[in-house]
Design a protein around this nucleic acid. Structure first.
Lengths: 162, 162
DNA sequence: CTGATTGCAAAGAATTTGCACTGCT
DNA sequence: AGCAGTGCAAATTCTTTGCAATCAG
């Protein structure tokens, strides 16, 4: 597993144009939103934020762009243990390898890395001869804070809107 | 992480009754179906197979039973890289720890174990202080057969534009 | 120019819910 | 008996699609 450097926004756009993909205002907005995000965004949030930059952007365009970026390996899709419905979350993919710990107590998502994870990937390649294209590791449970206090079972709620 | 022995059907039922859960014909059928399964089943297959044992079993009951078994940690939910839609797949959870490799070429699901995976879990506990309740590792890519032959790996080449 | 991309509206897939009835324990 | 569990149908949530209009290269 060769760790790729994290590409900046330009690199992402360049990557697309160099592959002959047309850059529209909507796609530019969505890429910007994803790269500027400090949290994991679902399709609805992506839509809302993209509309802040390009009003009138449509839901379908968001899904089509997600599909596009996934195909080019530029974003990763997460489930985050379905802590809040069955939607998916997205993040720019070329970051340092990490995975997510979703707390059932407070709803917080923690990022985590472990050298052993690299070893797992190496094992998959060498032992199973499996050529990994995407890999996803997620855990659900109680974060250190919630595990400490026995009675922290209030789920965090998220406002819903289209 | 102590590897648990694989419980037989009786143990699963006993586990439920001992926890005060009522055993209905539908639940019995669903548990039997899950334990006898030699493949990963989605809700629709579960429904169909359960109806073979208890005709008239309803879709809602399947989902409610899945929810129940998940809550009791008796089954695990898988996505299998969404190789075929967004549905979920289920398997009895108390088997030897393993994870799944989903081949984009032939669609086959391979099971895999690695001691390094145990190490990852240990790291999560000791370093993050995170109390794991469920953990899911899935990889998508090309299995050894599909990676070998350039033919089979139709999805390996540069993704097409949208 | 011209085919790729978009918006729109409607459809689709997977799952959930309210309610009256049924059947475990 | 009493309440957890079920069936039914409709509702919800998330995502996809067909088609005509639009726009990037």
């Amino acid at each position: 597993m060769t760790p790729r450097p994290r590409p900046d926004r330009r690199a992402l756009l360049d990557e697309l144009t160099s592959r002959g993909v047309r850059i529209t205002a909507q796609r530019r907005a969505l890429i910007a939103v994803i790269q500027d995000a400090n949290r994991h965004l679902d399709a609805a949030s992506l839509l809302q934020l993209a509309r802040g930059r390009v009003p009138g952007t449509n839901r379908a365009t968001v899904y089509r762009t997600i599909e596009l970026l996934k195909r080019f390996g530029l974003i990763d899709e997460l489930d985050l243990m379905h802590l809040d419905g069955e939607k998916h979350y997205y993040e720019a993919s070329a970051r340092r390898d990490h995975f997510h710990l979703a707390c059932f107590g407070c709803g917080r998502i923690e990022e985590f890395t472990s050298p052993a994870f690299e070893q797992v990937k190496a094992d998959i390649s060498s032992q199973a001869g499996f050529e990994i294209r995407v890999i996803r590791l997620e855990a659900g449970g109680l974060c250190s804070m919630c595990a400490g206090s026995a009675e922290t079972s209030r789920r965090r709620e998220t406002p819903k809107k289209d």
